[in-house]
Design a protein around this nucleic acid. Structure first.
Lengths: 195, 195
DNA sequence: CATAATGTATACCGATTGGTATACTGTTTA
DNA sequence: TAAACAGTATACCAATCGGTATACATTATG
């Protein structure tokens, strides 16, 4: 067996990273299993040895990546502090996490927007729901001390997530760098909308 | 030649409506040409007679559908009236148009979110840009009389579009009806964010 | 009536799809 | 040393992919 300490470089990791990149670039439905294993420098049975199917590979990819995003955001949004303070931190964290995990972030976003009967959509849905749930919990937490939030928690969660997601989508498409995305004025603009 | 007065029921229209439905349900990349022509009750060469390729069929579909959305929104957002009044009307119109053209609306949204190198993404991009442009023009128009809008037009356009798109995405997924989507309180919530 | 244009179907193309039966490694364990 | 093991490759499968060559209709026009 190979040295288990160092991650990556095992065939399983090579498959995962190649699949992630290809799914991100071309879309899940447009990438063939053959293309993935060619990129990873292995053959099909090896892939089917580690993942029971192409769909299983996607699910493994989503779980690994999405949990990273979800856990990071959870940590920030459940931290202690004033409403505005946490709100600001949450925006920064959200953007930072998305930038650092750009491939998997955009993959999840794209899958969530895709067609209803698409199996990739069905696989991505729970992770987006989880994300929305965390944001909603945040607004509920502050709805007691911030009167104007009361009864609007669901809308605020959708609005918050919607703004940031679309902001990232548009700016990624414009080829924006991390510095541009974390521009102080832009973050203040987003925060302002929820005060 | 068939009676040109009555639209629909020609083979060309049958192909378009079947393709729209299938693309919406399963995603562009998951629908084969064979599946489209089977649904339309015709054969492949007929499809290739009217559209030079599967991609050409998509482009025709997008142009027809997207222009309907874009034109409707343009009419409302360029109308005369106070800032808040037009803003309110714009939200209602946006949602109404999306509901009435649910299939093509969600198709465009999904394509815009899909992978960068995906040909369907490339086809959908200009229409989303056009939509974003209209919204931006709206905020620029009122940036003179509404001081707080100044310099934030681009952000406001992204924010406005992002909130509504995500709102519709989440509520469509929940199976919301037109009445629920046009709930007065929810619309007021959206409008409030831009005052 | 003949010719041309439009519209449609039969039957096919090579390439690729997701997936697998089978045999072969090298390593670990009894 | 022999059996069990995880891991990998060769070679294959039926089905489907997007697309087309060709012939056959129907209709409009000369």
């Amino acid at each position: 067996m190979r040295d288990g300490n160092k991650q990556d470089n095992t065939n399983k990791d090579k498959i995962l990273s190649c699949a992630q990149r290809l799914f991100y670039e071309k879309g899940y439905d447009c990438v063939g299993v053959q293309e993935i294993v060619d990129a990873a420098g292995i053959t099909k049975p090896t892939m089917y040895y580690y993942f029971k199917s192409k769909h299983g590979l996607l699910e493994c990819l989503l779980e690994r990546g999405a949990n990273q995003l979800v856990d990071g955001l959870k940590q920030t949004m459940r931290g202690s502090g004033g409403y505005q303070e946490i709100l600001y931190k949450a925006v920064v964290t959200y953007i930072e996490l998305a930038v650092e995990n750009k491939e998997i972030y955009l993959l999840i976003i794209s899958l969530f927007s895709s067609a209803r009967d698409n199996e990739a959509y069905i696989a991505a849905k729970p992770y987006l729901s989880k994300l929305l749930h965390i944001v909603r919990s945040f607004f509920m937490q502050y709805a007691n001390e911030q009167e104007h939030l009361k009864g609007r928690e669901d809308f605020l969660a959708i609005s918050f997530t919607g703004v940031i997601n679309y902001y990232l989508l548009v700016y990624f498409e414009r080829g924006a760098s991390k510095e541009i995305l974390l521009d102080e004025e832009m973050i203040q603009n987003i925060v302002k909308q929820f005060l």
